[in-house]
């Protein structure tokens, strides 16, 4: 049962990563590429953390996985904001 959940959730996570990578390569400008990238990071990593937590030996490991995901969300959100703001400034020619 746990293995099945791991396959399912990490599979969904991989789909998000693949879609995010495709978006990063194919989308036309910084903003849409950031959109693709952060979706992959946030949801993809979230599903992979969820999937691997079914293999965790203890609740401590599950909490650590959740902490890693939370930190990743924080970092991705901050970095994408900063990059987007910089790109906006560059576009407006300041």
């Amino acid at each position: 049962m746990g293995d099945l959940a791991t396959y399912a959730f990490t599979g969904i996570g991989l789909v998000f990563f693949a879609a995010g990578s495709a978006g990063l390569l194919r989308f036309p400008d910084v903003f849409s590429r950031l959109h693709a990238l952060t979706k992959a990071d946030n949801l993809g990593l979230g599903f992979i953390a969820l999937g691997t937590s079914f293999q965790a030996g203890s609740w401590r490991d599950v909490a650590l996985l959740a902490l890693i995901w939370g930190l990743m969300l924080l970092a991705a959100a901050t970095v994408s904001q900063l990059i987007a703001r910089d790109a906006l400034r560059e576009r407006d020619g300041e």
Binding site: L67, L71, L74, T78, Q81, L82
Partner: peptide, 13 residues
């Protein structure tokens, strides 16, 4: 702003 909030949230962890 975003950077300042990040700077406040990250250091404790």
């Amino acid at each position: 702003g975003v950077m300042e909030s990040f700077g406040r949230l990250l250091p404790p962890v």
